[in-house]
């Protein structure tokens, strides 16, 4: 399993960080949703709470774990942004980790949702999508490509 960079681990812990999960259905149609319960577990996997067994995300995640399809996560805080490509590893409907997420979610905003599952995701590839990091990367790869002439004017 790959290790998340420290910067990513740090923003994952922050309440205001935006966490987005992207999945796709049997026709390849993407489905992108906020999953603010997402966190990093001690074993280096990501976990989030699924509120509905009947949701599109839920059926897409089942399809992914059943047929080895990949999913995508974006974690963003201000100018810092990371994309994680991963695969669903487990769907927990009971047990310690499920209970922890359940209790945490139920406490939110004085009476939060009743979650149905906790999905565990194994990160396979991490890409820094921060604007500066991306600009530096593309410029290094293709020095005079993504630019207009007037930007090079004396």
């Amino acid at each position: 399993m790959i290790t998340l960079p420290e910067e990513l681990k740090n923003i994952l812990e922050k309440k205001e960080t935006v966490k987005i999960l992207g999945t796709s259905d049997k026709n390849g149609v993407p489905h992108v949703v906020l999953k603010d319960s997402m966190k990093l577990l001690d074993d280096g996997t990501l976990a989030y709470a699924e509120e509905f067994d009947s949701s599109k995300t839920s059926s897409n995640m089942v399809r992914s774990i059943w047929f080895d399809k990949l999913i995508s996560v974006n974690i963003a805080n201000g100018d810092t942004s990371y994309q994680i490509t991963g695969k669903p590893l487990r769907c927990l409907i009971t047990g310690k980790i499920f209970q922890q997420f359940l209790m945490s979610e139920r406490k939110r905003d004085g009476g939060g949702p009743d979650i149905q599952a906790v999905w565990i995701i194994e990160p396979l590839e991490i890409k820094n999508q921060s604007r500066k990091a991306r600009r530096d990367e593309e410029t290094k790869k293709y020095p005079l490509y993504n630019t207009h002439l007037d930007m090079l004017k004396k």
Partner: peptide
């Protein structure tokens, strides 16, 4: 008792 596979 009952068992569970990792997909639930």
């Amino acid at each position: 008792g009952p068992m569970i596979l990792r997909d639930g």
